[in-house]
């Protein structure tokens, strides 16, 4: 190899360094996954309609006429019928998506940030720090998650903020455990030892070697946790520990329509369909994300 060849090699390498990155290749693989695309599109539709609720909802979600109470599905003007106080169910479902998605997704985002950070720290720390963090985590695992959420919400009182806090507390230990076990497994790898054998600081090793490799198991788990979170949040609202009554939310709507189950059963199913559909889509998306992020599946 001559000097001139060497020098000519360098600029093209910088060009090559701009070749599709890891995240773009994950995106490309996700685009080839039909189930992933379908669930992402359904979720997108739900999120967009919730955001655009004031524009697309046909009626005011909080006012209705007693004259038209419990109209069946397909009633002109009320496509999905009306509830016991005559409010338009379609409008309430669209508006309800706002609170339901907010109380389903926010706790998971918070829990991923808190639990992920603590988990990585625990996984990279020595016996003592790891022991302290993990034993405290174990205490939370002694309670079933719904029971714990109900207990914390009950203590804190009603309201959206308290629901978010209680769900975050429930999910932090779960994310933490996934992050810790992933980190422990990664920290044992030779490439981390190779990085340790250089002059790199602990922080640099953590951010450059460990984080990119534990991120995918944490993100995949968090996505599937949203599915759980949506159901638990709806559950809290169903038993009246969440948002205050007039506000539309799928869980509390399910409770309001509970009485209609004998008169017009199809009506009472509607909020449940929304909860299940969203939850299932997040689960499917989590699966697709898991395989798209598996680096070994590239080029296969």
């Amino acid at each position: 190899m001559t000097m001139t060849q060497l020098q000519s090699a360098s600029p093209s390498v910088s060009a090559a360094a701009k070749a599709p990155g890891y995240w773009r290749s994950v995106g490309q693989r996700l685009m080839r996954d039909r189930v992933g695309i379908a669930s992402a599109l359904v979720l997108l539709a739900i999120v967009v309609s919730a955001l655009a609720a004031p524009l697309i909802a046909p009626h005011d979600p909080n006012s209705g006429s007693v004259m038209t109470r419990l109209s069946p599905i397909g009633t002109p003007g009320h496509l999905l019928g009306t509830d016991a106080t005559g409010r338009d169910i379609l409008s309430r479902l669209i508006w309800g998506g706002r609170l339901s998605l907010l109380s389903g997704i926010t706790p998971v985002v918070l829990a991923t940030l808190i639990g992920g950070t603590l988990g990585i720290i625990a996984g990279m720390s020595g016996r003592l720090v790891n022991g302290i963090i993990m034993r405290i985590t174990d205490i939370f695992f002694a309670f079933p998650s719904i029971l714990l959420a109900v207990a914390i919400s009950g203590v804190l009182g009603n309201g959206l903020g308290n629901t978010l806090v209680s769900l975050t507390v429930v999910f932090v230990p779960q994310v933490l455990r996934v992050a810790e076990s992933a980190t422990v497994q990664i920290a044992r790898q030779d490439y981390v030892d190779a990085a340790r054998a250089t002059t790199a600081s602990r922080l640099l090793i953590m951010t450059s070697q460990v984080l990119p490799n534990v991120l995918s198991p944490i993100l995949v788990f968090a996505t599937s946790l949203i599915a759980v979170s949506l159901v638990v949040a709806a559950g809290l609202n169903f038993i009246g520990l969440g948002v205050a009554p007039p506000a539309a939310e799928w869980g509390s709507m399910l409770n309001e329509l509970r009485d209609a189950i004998y008169i017009n059963p199809t009506l009472s199913i509607l909020p449940g369909v929304m909860i299940v559909a969203t939850s299932v889509c997040f689960n499917l998306l989590s699966d697709s994300l898991g395989s798209a992020m598996n680096i070994r599946e590239t080029d296969k």
Binding site: A17, D190, Y191, A195, T198, A200, I295
Partner: peptide
């Protein structure tokens, strides 16, 4: 197979000790 970071490009892997220094 385990001594190279699976999520890093080869050039970045070789650059790492230099960047750390």
């Amino acid at each position: 197979s385990t001594s190279l970071n699976p999520r890093a490009r080869i050039l970045d892997i070789v650059m790492f000790p230099l960047r750390a220094a």
